[in-house]
Write a protein that binds this DNA or RNA. Structure first.
Lengths: 218, 218
DNA sequence: GCCTGTGAAGCTATTCACAGCT
DNA sequence: AGCTGTGAATAGCTTCACAGGC
């Protein structure tokens, strides 16, 4: 089975592999990839197994094969569209960040309650009033939602999105979204992450042994 | 032991508890907190145990006690300062986001290689050239770093930060930072998170059973 | 000799289930 | 009756270690 943690690492390996390919490399050993991504060699091999990719004892893994296999797992066959709610500082940064990055996963509409934004195009993405959320999501065939608004309004917006047909949400609001089964929610909580860094940094003051290095943000 | 996952949940419980307190509530049961945060009641009780907080069978947990105990665990005794590198869209959003949010964890300086920014104050945070990184980090007694620059430059900047005395890093660059033991690194990878949402959303198309709800971004 | 693929072992995290309290 | 605290059970994830291949 392709588990959550494996999916995260695949996304990570892929970037590395793409770099290697760009450098003209053809093959890679599990321990190379491991060293570059900060995981163990066994882990890399297990992950490759999980996506049905296999290497060869003398040359390691064939990079083109790996990239194909990872693509088959991670990339949608048909494009998937996302809508963002909350065109504040964070929302704009998110739109800018994803612009053109993944051709098959695109933020196609942005919503906000500030009327000054209606009709404006922010980093290539058109803004709509939240009232049009249902209509626009359905018209544009959007299935992913990105929530970048204060915690107080997040639950309501999530419900509206789901009602309109969204089945996966990336939530930046520091609150638990309660949604029906079958809707996938991924949370990114900036405050929590910073608190975590601050906490473990304090823990490590002095005794620098058994370092508890954070990994890929899961 | 207070493990990584527990720390994440504590940060989360705290927000809920603060809201409850604001509403005038005095006590809370583990299953209430559980329902509101999307974890199980046992989990809540285990977490409270981990920070040495205990409840009472008839009223549940005393909210003020929990908040104290969580604060003792999560909050630094003395303020901890952070520096951000990369005053692009994302960097600005991060600075704006944290501004005034945690009095004891503050972003005190921002660095960028764009000379137009030098001396400017972005969302209350002064910008410096990256060349001044070492000096400013030492002068301002900064121990946390936030990296919001492209992957290509991230490793180099991380090394400079560590050399200047930073011991914990929040990394938004989609790359593995290789740092010496004893330095804590927490990664937030936006591309990966969106890919993950897209992936699991596809998995759930059709069969909506055994929903694989994402939790707190770990 | 050094690599992959993988069963088995080892860890870590979560949930169960129930004794004990109020 | 319904809650907390917690040993024991379970589930999930990672690493070990080694057989087999080039």
């Amino acid at each position: 089975m392709t588990t959550k943690k494996t999916i995260e690492r695949l996304s990570f390996y892929r970037r590395l592999l793409a770099e290697l390919r760009a450098k003209g490399e053809k093959y890679v050993f599990s321990h190379d990839l491991a060293a570059k991504t900060g995981v163990t060699a066994s882990q890399v091999r297990r992950d490759m197994m999980a996506i049905g990719s296999s290497g060869n004892s003398s040359r390691g893994y064939f990079i083109a094969d790996l990239l194909d296999a990872i693509g088959r797992t991670l990339d949608p066959d048909a494009p998937q569209y996302a809508a963002l709610v909350g065109v504040g500082n964070l929302g704009r940064a998110i739109v800018a960040f994803f612009r053109g990055r993944k051709p098959n996963i695109r933020i196609k509409a942005a919503f906000d309650k500030d009327p000054d934004l209606y009709g404006r195009v922010i980093h290539g993405c058109r803004c709509y009033p939240v009232d049009d959320l249902h209509r626009v999501i359905q018209e544009k065939d959007i299935e992913l939602g990105v929530i970048a608004i204060p915690a107080t309004d997040a639950q309501k917006v999530a419900e509206q999105m789901v009602a309109a047909g969204v089945t996966g949400v990336l939530n930046f609001a520091p609150t638990h979204l309660s949604v029906e089964k079958g809707i996938y929610v991924e949370n990114i909580d900036l405050t929590m992450s910073l608190e975590k860094v601050a906490y473990f940094t304090r823990q490590q003051r002095g005794r620098s042994k058994h370092a508890n290095k954070g990994r890929i943000a899961t």
